[in-house]
Design a protein around this nucleic acid. Sequence first.
DNA 1: GGGTCAATGGGCATCGCAACCCATGGTGCC
DNA 2: GGCACCATGGGTTGCGATGCCCATTGACCC
Lengths: 219, 219
Amino acid sequence: MPVPLKTKVLLADDHVVVREGLRMVLNAAPDIEVVAEAGDGAEAVKLALRGEPNLAILDVSMPVMTGLQAAREISRRRPELRILMLSMHENEQYLFEALKAGASGYVLKSVANRDLLEACRATMRGEPFLYPAALTTLVRDYLDGARRGETVPEDPLTPRELEVVKLIAEGHTSEEIAELLVISKKTVDRHRANMLEKLGMRNRVELTRYAIRRGLVEP
Amino acid sequence: MPVPLKTKVLLADDHVVVREGLRMVLNAAPDIEVVAEAGDGAEAVKLALRGEPNLAILDVSMPVMTGLQAAREISRRRPELRILMLSMHENEQYLFEALKAGASGYVLKSVANRDLLEACRATMRGEPFLYPAALTTLVRDYLDGARRGETVPEDPLTPRELEVVKLIAEGHTSEEIAELLVISKKTVDRHRANMLEKLGMRNRVELTRYAIRRGLVEP
DNA sequence: GGGTCAATGGGCATCGCAACCCATGGTGCC
DNA sequence: GGCACCATGGGTTGCGATGCCCATTGACCC
């Protein structure tokens, strides 16, 4: 009788010890085998296109090419290859980027030993796998979105909002921004409030980090 | 003839897979043995004081209490216990903080498999161990300092202030920070005001960018 | 023509931040 | 002993930020 084929895994993370730990966890399972390892996104793409693996486990942040970029590239050029994203942080922004980039699952490193095998199996069955908090977020956003009859937009911020968040991140007060943009302080407040709502953030500090991540301002 | 005693290692990192990888690397060496593991800084301190380990390997960033805080606490209360700091990033600031906190060595996770054993042995011999770029930095700063006949005044912030600014940059309010650090909200306000004064800044947003530039938080 | 949305702006209430005042205990240095 | 610095914390006051209500205009789409 035919032995069920092992899932062949491509493991990509820039930290060797993390790869060691993950490989140990994965190879301990009888139905999973790590067949390739990459230290950056570009290498991961190259190995993925070579054809052997059927599951890519990518760390979100890697040098040369991030896990997100690599995922986009891989799912465009070899869509049958399943992708599982691995992240250090519970970050909503990354989560959506990852799903948009073609990932089927999203696992936090802090609980990787517990969830990883289950995530691999779910992914290979064609099911998505998310960590619990991500699922909660997704359901909430789905409900919000369904009520408005639309999906989560590509870039959540409008051009005007980008101008405002840039000035916020430079440390200006609402009143200063109003003067700079020649609009009312209330409108600046309105834009800020809309951005906080859209991004699920609490205050200017989080917006500041967002602006820096987006490259709108220098840290 | 007496067999040389094994170095008993306490391993502290909040990510289980990282610990798995490190433990594998360490236990593969005949002269080293992992005898305790911790998932946060507070736990690490508790286990360190229990007395069994003679080398603590601490991740710089951990929840509840960072590796730096833990190192300070450990070297204050059990100075004979050697400390090796482990970091994700080549960050000068962490390096100096770590050395000031009593660490004998500083190893990057990205090359941990290569350097870690050597770092453990050097540390147990009482020698410092730094990754090459850190050594370069250190030498350069020493030369700069020697030429001016003084040390680098580089960091105007105290350890406590660094903790506070880190939490500010993570988006926490004064009240939340007060709870996290178990001090009064007024003291948090006081620290923030002192930092704004010292750095010539106006508000939390500028402090946030400062914290990111210094590598205290991720953007 | 009706729907949606971006951009504009007003009022009001509350919260959190920032700028001042004040004081105490500990540590380290000379 | 005195001085400087750090960490602690209390009170007040004003201003900025945030949240929640409201409305109008113009562009674009079906």
